[in-house]
């Protein structure tokens, strides 16, 4: 397996860890435990004494350190891709990932300095998922299977279904972020019913946001099932489509279960964070399936060049 592809997979895994750390910050209410930025209580971030990582500082400062590490890994990724990758659009995608992670860091700092205004915090949560999608896409585009491109499935209906599903899942994640950052997580305190009814008998902005998240959960789950059934019926022999489709169904089942448990446990932080991370995995799996359905539309000849170039590239290799 080419080193670059392995490295990008490491960045993807680090990003999942970063999303989990960010999820714990919000789930434990630790977003303001470190009031300053980019310093930590006046210390340079990397020299802040460990014995002072008490209370919510552990989560917030830990999140900042992991974020800095991911930022550093992304700089290496961008430079490496720029040097060895012959496909111009992939090179720019890597630059886009670097820009996204820099902007994400600034948004994180800004939301602390402005005392967590919901629009900035929601933007921070939404961009985290987009950055994850960017790194995941880069991992896919540099994978041996993508580069081989042997007889990819050409199914316009699957492309429509998978792209719409990915869009719906992302919208659902934004609704979830809105719910978390406006404090509407317990606006409907029971599950699966709402105040004992199918439709909430009382309404407020918080109830509306919470209920919208539940309704869109059903819509997104329906789209995922439709996509998975389509793959099952029309592409049963294609493991590259069948596996993400099956995984998607499993993940959405886990996601709805976690969502219910989050409410029933009164926003238990670890369950709440697991719901956030699993949501990212649903989005990522849906994206992989969608991109693979679009594989025939990507150019072929340059990809063959890319396969040769990426296969030849060592960690220190230069673009040939």
């Amino acid at each position: 397996m080419p080193w670059l592809h392995r490295y990008i997979k490491l960045v993807v895994a680090s990003t999942v860890l970063l999303i989990a750390a960010g999820g714990m910050v919000t789930s434990t209410g630790s977003g303001l435990a470190v009031p300053d930025w980019p310093n930590t209580y006046g210390w340079f971030m990397f020299s802040f004494p460990m014995e002072k990582w008490v209370g919510g500082i552990f989560y917030e400062h830990g999140h900042r350190l992991i974020a800095s590490t991911v930022g550093f890994l992304t700089i290496i990724l961008a430079v490496w891709v720029w040097r060895v990758e012959p496909r111009r659009w992939v090179r720019w995608l890597a630059v886009g990932a670097l820009g996204a992670v820099v902007f994400q860091g600034l948004l994180g700092g800004l939301t602390v300095l402005l005392l967590l205004p919901a629009p900035v915090s929601i933007g921070h949560a939404g961009l985290a998922q987009l950055f994850f999608c960017l790194t995941l896409s880069l991992a896919l585009f540099t994978s041996p299977r993508w580069l081989a491109a042997e007889n990819p499935a050409d199914d316009p209906m699957l492309r429509k279904l998978a792209a719409a599903t990915t869009g719906l899942v992302y919208f659902q994640i934004l609704l979830g972020a809105t719910m978390r950052h406006t404090g509407a997580g317990m606006a409907i305190p029971d599950f699966p019913l709402a105040f004992g009814h199918v439709i909430p008998p009382v309404w407020s902005a918080a109830v509306a946001i919470h209920f919208a998240h539940r309704v869109f959960a059903l819509i997104a789950a329906g789209a995922i099932l439709a996509t998975a059934l389509h793959v099952h019926h029309h592409h049963r022999g294609r493991r590259e489509l069948l596996r993400p489709a099956a995984l998607l169904v499993l993940l959405v089942f886990v996601q709805i279960t976690l969502g219910g448990l989050v409410v029933l446990t009164g926003l238990q932080p670890f369950l709440n964070t697991a719901h956030v991370v699993n949501g990212a995995l649903v989005l990522g799996t849906s994206l992989v399936l969608a991109l693979r359905s679009f594989r025939p539309l990507f150019e072929r000849a340059p990809v063959r060049d890319a396969r040769r170039a990426v296969s030849a590239a060592s960690p220190l290799g230069a673009r040939s």
Binding site: L32, G42, I57, L115
Partner: peptide, 19 residues
């Protein structure tokens, strides 16, 4: 260390660092 977060609604809110 403590932070002092004044969640003021009318006055400007603040979150002081007291390390």
């Amino acid at each position: 260390l403590h932070t002092v977060h004044a969640l003021a609604q009318v006055n400007p809110a603040f979150n002081l660092s007291q390390p």
